[in-house]
Nucleic acid binder design. Structure first.
Lengths: 158, 158
DNA sequence: CCTAAGATGTTGAATGGTGAACTAGCCTGG
DNA sequence: CCAGGCTAGTTCACCATTCAACATCTTAGG
């Protein structure tokens, strides 16, 4: 009789799927970053722009933006400072809560977004979406959705 | 007749799958990192340990290790320096090519690996593998494998 | 009210990552 | 055999991220 619980190692199939997942993630991030580079944007920059451009009035509270992009407040603060220097975004005070700030997309930020997004979408297609059959896409979504939900639940837990 | 090529935007289904994929990645990385933290290791550290422990003689050439973990040589060099200071790894000269160095797992590194890996595997199970049915796992592998291959091909291209 | 606890955001120091320049050793063709 | 170009790895200067300390404002309880 075992005195300690045996580790439940991964089967070959599990390990293979897991490593493929890891590899795709890393290579994909690398590739998207690279395709964005000619425009002087990082993936982080781009994601901020997406969030803002999809928001009402092109603005979001710093906290909400940090939550939406899964970054720490500190990191977002630095990030927005950099983007402010690049005139992609500006900070604006919040009337209703004077502790608060909005990050607001500037005209130049919006313009940048319009120019860059087609290229980014093309990149996502080329390196991901278009390599998946409609069935595979659906399967992927089905497989990952519950995981996303589980992980969201884990956030900010012991 | 259009004078410029229209952007082929993502459909709702495509966008949804894409964003789920992104979200899972980020949250999963966050979670795995967090589960590794009590042992004083980062995901990067862990991955180096895995690579070395699976290698012949518990050693790999710096270049090979960099390629295997998809890091720049510079980054790996810093990383190994840190791990050397933590006595997880040591550098050793290469007889056959005197430019070369091996990163070698130390006894303490191996011991650490033995202690930590069951927890890491449990974490991978809890937050990923065990949330997938065997079918979903197979689907995932099927969907991602060609993408991994495509991306590997893109590496180090114009 | 007033105070204490909590939320919002910034800052600064320390650590980690990047990319280019560099050192050193290998290898090939003339 | 030796000059040039190539490969391995490190280093340096700069940028990005983290973590803890802080300033400011809000809100809930007494």
């Amino acid at each position: 009789m075992e005195t300690e619980t045996a580790t439940h190692w991964l089967t070959d199939a599990e390990q293979c799927a897991w490593r493929t997942h890891l590899e795709v993630n890393r290579l994909l991030t690398y590739q998207l970053e690279k395709d964005l580079q000619p425009f002087g944007l990082t993936i982080n920059d781009y994601e901020i722009l997406v969030n803002l451009s999809e928001s009402d009035e092109m603005r979001m509270r710093m906290s909400d933006l940090a939550a939406a992009t899964l970054q720490s407040k500190s990191r977002l603060s630095h990030q927005i400072t950099r983007m402010e220097n690049a005139d992609l975004v500006r900070r604006e005070n919040c009337e209703s809560d004077r502790r608060g700030l909005f990050a607001v997309l500037t005209a130049h930020g919006l313009e940048t977004m319009r120019k860059v997004s087609p290229h980014h979408v093309a990149s996502v297609r080329k390196h991901f979406i278009d390599l998946l059959s409609p069935d595979a896409l659906a399967d992927l979504e089905t497989a990952l959705k519950p995981i996303a939900q589980h992980l969201r639940g884990q956030r900010g837990r012991p």
